[in-house]
Design a protein around this nucleic acid. Structure first.
Lengths: 207, 207
DNA sequence: TAGATTGTTAATCGATTAACAATC
DNA sequence: TAGATTGTTAATCGATTAACAATC
């Protein structure tokens, strides 16, 4: 098995496969073919077989891949077998929706802290967590070993919230708002852009 | 100017540029360089210049690109100058968050209908829209010329909601739930997968 | 055995990158 | 003029695709 660092493309595809396998497993299926994986991931089936074969012969000819086995193998390759802690900024509708869903929990991420600037929301409970004021972020991030920050705040509040995360030494920022954020050295910013993806899908429908 | 169909990669990148330009324009800046566009899009600056130069010489050497002019040009290339109508399924926290935000509105998409199965929510107002029961979807989609359906329902309800959209003849489905959806001929399904993208970012942090 | 699907090859295409002249 | 950034080339690398033998 190759022990080199994966290329950007390989890591992106393996993450996508892993996410699909986790949902497939949850749905009770225990076998999957490169064809089905292709339909859900948008990646060419030959490319999928090539990716998986390069890291170990995980499949059975004529049968496909064992979902849980493959899931475990990819988790090891991506070094994401453990639990990782997330801080969520913003407890409006979007923040509450994220906190209550299993989007992250299904994949080994635990939302470990909620922050707000609105004093009315501070102190309220969401699930097992108590909403904290943003001023407590540095200490909490350190204490709870949080490396990911999720921004679910209005666009206007996003830059300040991002700076708070950077000051608190978070390594990865996940931006759900439509605001553009400045980059900081050593911090990865990932912005959701549903509108951009919709424009892309529309182009192929319109032409 | 080339009038051929864009490649998948080109269309994806141009959509991303357009989304960033729209936000840049909103922020009041009227000039942008390939370097800044690169920081926000993750695309190599040379690749950006190559993409843009291939479709017309839009930039000024030593200066950069005029934001609004470039935005207009890309909109024409992507055939997305017009308004497009969206149906939103699910009026929980996530649905309300999407309906009240400008994520789609900023890019020429108008949320034109809201649907729910919960009788308590049907009839309530969200902004200017009245929440409708899912049973009205076929007629409404036809009447309001809706081609995009956004799923903001719990994972368990997602497959049924997706089928309702397909029956209503929607062409593009945007899945915000973590459920896997079956594909249908002629319908593009695009699933958000924040957890997958987070696994990807984490891999490069951990290795 | 028959059917299905992986693993693998080879050929093509698109993306990435460095470098730099052109020019604002 | 000096500084900055585009447009463009060329070389390399990774992704896509078709095809098919291997094998479950």
């Amino acid at each position: 098995m190759a022990e080199e660092r994966l290329s950007l493309g390989q890591a992106a595809r393996l993450s996508r496969y892993l996410q699909i396998l986790t949902q497939t497993s949850k749905a009770g299926r225990n076998n999957i073919s490169s064809k089905v994986l292709s339909e859900h991931s948008g990646v060419n089936p030959t490319q999928i077989r090539r990716d998986l074969a390069a890291l170990g012969k995980f499949g059975k000819r004529g049968v496909g891949y064992d979902v849980d086995y493959l899931k475990g193998q990819i988790k090891e390759i991506l070094h994401t077998s453990g639990q990782h802690n997330i801080a969520l900024l913003g407890c409006g509708n979007l923040g509450i929706a994220i906190a209550r869903s299993n989007v992250f929990a299904d994949h080994g991420f635990r939302i470990s802290a909620l922050f707000e600037t609105d004093p009315v929301k501070v102190g309220q409970k969401v699930g097992d967590l108590v909403v904290q004021h943003i001023s407590e972020i540095v200490e909490t991030v350190k204490d709870r070993n949080i490396i990911v920050g999720v921004l679910a705040v209005p666009p206007k509040a996003a830059p300040a919230a991002a700076n708070a995360l950077i000051d608190a030494n978070v390594k990865i920022i996940f931006n759900y708002s439509e605001a553009l954020l400045d980059t900081a050295p050593g911090v990865t910013v990932h912005s959701m852009s549903p509108a951009g993806e919709l424009l892309y899908a529309l182009y192929f429908y319109l032409s």
